[in-house]
């Protein structure tokens, strides 16, 4: 297809097309929108991107991303330092924070064990977690990992490693999501929900 714009605009479209949720066509629309709103949107966006690229760091304690190191979560004195919530990815940390589900500190593993993708224990921050869990003030480690075979294999692996630490290791419940109708749930989820039933 012949180019309809200069190389700078084509480059912008190519980069936008790499973003999640955007294909070449939607990237072209986004680029056009940015160009039309140059002062209101494009200039502030490019400035924000430049600042973020310069300042964003990975937290040396928990693996979260932030513009300060240690991150805002790790330095927040209102959070319970005796509980560490282990998540696979920063997106999971953000999801739990959106839910206001727990007021604790986090540990981001950077993924889950996956033989097919060649992800082993040495590719994750499991060693740092084990070190943190052995600290005297830590009383509980909550494994908030995906309810998948890879996620739960990682959870059991971490549980094995924390055997000698003086901490309670817990995991999220399996089962019926809020608003879920039994008739529409898959058999596996139903079976897991029955196995994880609790007294009323």
């Amino acid at each position: 297809m012949p180019a309809v714009a200069g190389p700078e605009i084509e480059r912008l479209i190519q980069l936008l097309a790499r973003l999640p949720g955007l294909g070449p066509r939607s990237a072209r629309r986004a680029a056009l929108h940015l160009i039309k709103k140059r002062e209101q949107l494009m200039t502030p966006l490019s400035a924000a991107l430049a600042v973020a690229a310069e300042k964003i760091q990975v937290c040396r304690i928990c693996g979260n991303i932030d513009t300060q190191n240690p991150c805002t979560v790790c330095t927040d004195p209102r959070r319970d330092p005796s509980v560490i919530v282990v998540v696979a990815d920063v997106a999971d940390l953000w999801a739990l924070e959106r839910a206001h589900a727990v007021n604790a500190r986090y540990h981001v593993l950077g993924g889950t064990l996956s033989p097919l993708d060649g992800v082993g224990p040495e590719d994750l921050t499991i060693d740092a977690l084990v070190t943190r869990a052995h600290a005297a003030d830590v009383k509980e480690v909550i494994l908030a990992l995906n309810a998948t075979v890879d996620g739960q294999t990682t959870a059991h692996y971490i549980t094995d490693l924390l055997n000698d630490a003086d901490v309670a290791v817990t995991r999220l419940a399996y089962g019926v999501p809020v608003g879920g109708e039994l008739d529409y749930l898959d058999e596996g989820t139903l079976a897991a929900a029955i196995r994880s039933r609790t007294p009323v």
Partner: peptide, 19 residues
């Protein structure tokens, strides 16, 4: 899916490691 047994062994370490 015919038999979605994976959900039934997520809480058992030996089964997860075995599979």
């Amino acid at each position: 899916g015919i038999d979605l047994r994976a959900a039934t062994f997520l809480d058992r370490a030996h089964a997860l490691y075995g599979v």
